[in-house]
Nucleic acid binder design. Structure first.
Lengths: 210, 210, 210, 210
DNA sequence: GATGAATGAGGGTTCATTCAT
DNA sequence: AATGAATGAACCCTCATTCAT
């Protein structure tokens, strides 16, 4: 059996087990057995538990990023791009619950080396979303006359992007657990929730205490 | 030294270490050393690693819930309540980053017994937020004439609450990491992001593709 | 509460626990709790686990020996003495199953220091029984004319005594476990089994293969 | 080195150490060192201390039973069968003192799971002996005229078998300790002690107090 | 006379990792 | 290309024992 195939089997087994049990609670024996190979072979191909976990993170991160990027077409207006990206995101995480668990739960909980790996990908996404928000601000045309400052600060944009991504992550987990809610539904919820408010925000409306 | 004091020392050490390393990667030796006691004493007072972790989760969950509940006054309008709750939430998590890490990252990643513990608390919060949204829908008065259906379905409300809480959780991490943003800023970001859009949503505006 | 009483409570608890769990599996905590005192008090009175176990062995050995010796009257014929002794033995072990378990099972299984203690008592009994057998040989009068050598060798006597005591010990356990069989029944069984054959033996009868 | 060989080495070491120190006082380190392997290997092959101990008990019980059964020929008269069995028993226990110690002392002292294991074997033997006694009763021909009831009750037979086996067990220890007495001598002692009296017993003679 | 507080030491078990084949 | 055999190190937990009060 060619090496590439074997490697994929091992990583599939690893992702599944890491997702279920967590990094520390997963033993190399478990992975080897689930992959149907002997333990030394796992070491021969993937060197160590740490490298194996890192490889899993990278593979799943890349798969997720690719799925999202493939769904967005640069030419479209910002809201359409966000809509497409969210749909792809919810679809992919629903189809790859283990990969998503590894990225979202496991990688971020087991110390710097791994958290960093996924943090990079997350920053790429957050930056991308921030870009969409900025574009939307530009597209939104003239602010309502007499309204407050329209241009959100960089810090505002960063916070908004952060919040939007966080909300999406949270919904992804919810969709997986509750079942029922399709990727489309989740996307609609989030777009309504965020975009409608966002557009008002860009027109200068603000909420403030009292 | 009296037992109660020692116990608190141990749990402080435990929360800190669990937050940093994760449940499995934390050794009882580490906790004992950080608490300045011998390992058997930890067992004498807290019985087992599992019980210790559970005790940490419960303590931190209670502290967070108490902080949030103490900040909200039932009489106020929904948006003011949400604002007060969010402020308390961001303040508390910023002041207790380790406790927050245990609740948000560690407890949910290490198997049923622990995840359940924190899931209960989260559900309480999500339900509370859903209640606020429902109240807001009632308070919001007459819908814009000619607009679509105003009353959001139960499922909508649940999704919105889920997304809002998820966004808040995500921002809590961001606040902690980035440092600069104060609890007030984070609250403002989130209120603007969510509430402004929410009110439009309640008036019947919807975002839809195309 | 006077020291003597406390000490007896502790040793009662110790005998019971040692009998049930064995020496190693019994913890000082268990004994202290069952005795209703604090652990340091046990150490104050009985110094160490080893000394405590030894004290238990000695107390129970003495009680058993005393019970057996009190039952036998030196003036009687050998068979009556043996009968009286066996009755006392079965009665005492049935009434003190824990003490008997400590002597017969635990003390002999947990290494030299303890095994020796009980071995001494056992040797006293075996020697006493051997004496009875020797007396019986003398009392038995003239051997059947033409028969083989009547006087059993010292080694024979020792072996017989050993076997008799072993049989008694085995029956004691059986009586305790099966219940039902009273001390009298056990004694009768053993006397019939051993003494009848013994008297023939002394008359020169022997069993031999072929 | 092949697994089967290693396993036997480990069990040999285990039997020896358990016999000397007892179950609880024996550490897996000790066994591993005596077997000349590392501790993890012991666990890899034998799973746990408990299973290891059980395996030892089973192996030794089987070996003893096999030795005794191989020595007895079903066709022979009862006394010859008993003689052959006893000889085999004393020979085997003298040649395997550690195995005998594990069965007779350790297994019966360390709680239900183990005691049961050896209790089964002992019951097989006691039943077998009881069968021999019953056969002897039948073979013994006409009772002495005018004597009391010849047929011993079932309870009598059980008690006699119990006593005989107990005596044998006790003598086995004595043989091992004293060294000098060979298996043949021990057998002779016991046959004289028990069988001669037994035959009189079957003829209706009884011992009774006074 | 009695105890709450505390620990050094050791035992059962698991695991990531390597080597000879 | 693949594995059976083997281990150093670490972890959870328990226990006999002491001291200050």
């Amino acid at each position: 059996m060619p090496r590439a195939v074997r490697e994929r089997q091992m990583m599939d087994a690893a992702v599944r087990t890491f997702a279920e049990r967590g990094y520390r609670a997963t033993s190399m024996d478990e992975i080897a057995e689930l992959a149907g190979v002997s333990k030394p072979l796992v070491y021969l191909y993937l060197n160590s538990k740490e490298e194996l976990f890192t490889a899993c993170i990278r593979r799943e991160a890349e798969a997720l990023l690719t799925a999202v990027q493939a769904a967005t077409e640069p030419g479209l207006p910002a809201d359409r791009q966000l809509w497409a990206g969210l749909t792809a995101f919810f679809t992919h995480t629903a189809e790859n619950p283990d990969g998503w668990a590894v990225l979202h739960r496991q990688a971020r909980t087991h110390g710097e080396p791994f958290a960093l790996e996924v943090s990079v990908m997350r920053d790429v996404i957050v930056d991308y979303v921030a870009g969409l928000i900025r574009t939307a601000a530009t597209e939104s045309g003239t602010p309502r006359p007499g309204a407050g400052p329209t241009e959100p600060t960089e810090r505002d944009v960063a916070g908004l992007a952060q919040a939007l991504v966080g909300a999406a992550e949270s919904l992804a987990g919810w969709v997986n657990e509750m079942g029922g809610a399709s990727a489309k539904e989740a996307t609609a919820t989030l777009m309504n929730f965020a975009w409608v408010g966002l557009s008002d925000l860009l027109k200068g409306e603000r909420w403030s205490p009292r």
